[in-house]
Amino acid sequence: MAEFGKGIAFYRRQYHLDVGEGFYIDLLLVHVPSNRFVVVELKAGKSKPEHLGQLNFYVSAVNDLVRFPGMAPTVGILVCGSKHEPTVRYALDGSSQPIAVTSYTYDTLPPEEREALPSPEAITAVLDQHASEEAPYGE
């Protein structure tokens, strides 16, 4: 949570969006200073255009179904194992939603911080296990 900066509050993990089908947002946070929701999608591998489409869908749905009156528009963040800049640029071209893509850079952290955080392999294992145990939701 600290990596998202000051003023971030946890709202819900695996937030269920019921829009005819069940969809689950990995993390739904609130940025208190700007009074807005922040949708966070976690992907263990490389970012793909479809991940950004899914995130765009979630941001739109939160704005329409979840956001309280007076709140600022929702922001989306895709956290992935790696990203290819041209793919991200083309996938975001034409999107009107405020969306960002970042990668999880475990290997560049100092050793004491690496010990405190899960490895990318551990995150992948948990996500894979969670996906097989829970109701299906977008990858």
Rank of each mutant, 00 (worst) to 15 (best):
H84E: 13
P86K: 05
Y106S: 02
T87R: 01
P49H: 09
E85W: 10
Y104C: 05
V79W: 02
F57T: 12
V101K: 13
S96Q: 04
F68K: 14
G81P: 03
L78H: 10
P73A: 03
T105R: 15
A61Y: 01
V39N: 13
C80F: 01
S60Q: 13
K43Y: 06
Y106F: 14
V101Y: 00
S47A: 15
T105L: 08
N56T: 14
K83V: 11
V66T: 12
R89W: 06
E85C: 00
V39Q: 09
E50V: 11
E41W: 07
A61L: 07
R89M: 12
L65G: 03
A91F: 06
S47R: 02
V66I: 09
H51Q: 05
G70P: 03
H84W: 03
P33A: 04
V79D: 00
E85H: 07
S34P: 00
T87S: 11
V66D: 13
V32N: 11
S60H: 04
V38A: 03
R36K: 10
K83Y: 08
V59L: 07
R36T: 11
V88I: 01
S103Q: 01
A61E: 12
K48S: 09
S47G: 10
L78R: 14
V101A: 08
G53N: 14
V38I: 14
A91Q: 05
V59Y: 09
A44S: 15
A100D: 11
P86W: 03
F37R: 04
F57K: 10
R67I: 02
V101R: 06
G94H: 03
L92Y: 02
K48L: 15
E41Y: 08
T87I: 14
F37V: 00
D64C: 07
T105F: 01
Q54G: 02
P69G: 09
Q54I: 06
R36W: 12
Y106R: 02
G70S: 01
P69K: 06
F68L: 13
V39C: 07
V39F: 08
G76E: 12
D64V: 13
L42Y: 06
S34N: 08
S96C: 09
V39E: 06
V75M: 07
V40L: 04
K43R: 14
E85D: 15
N56L: 07
G45L: 04
E50M: 00
V66Q: 10
V40D: 11
T87E: 12
M71T: 09
E50Q: 05
V75I: 09
S47I: 02
N35E: 14
L92D: 04
P49N: 09
G53W: 10
V66H: 10
K46M: 12
V32Y: 00
E85Y: 10
I99F: 00
H84R: 08
R67A: 10
R89I: 01
Q54H: 10
S95N: 09
K43S: 04
Y58T: 06
R36L: 08
F57S: 09
P33Q: 08
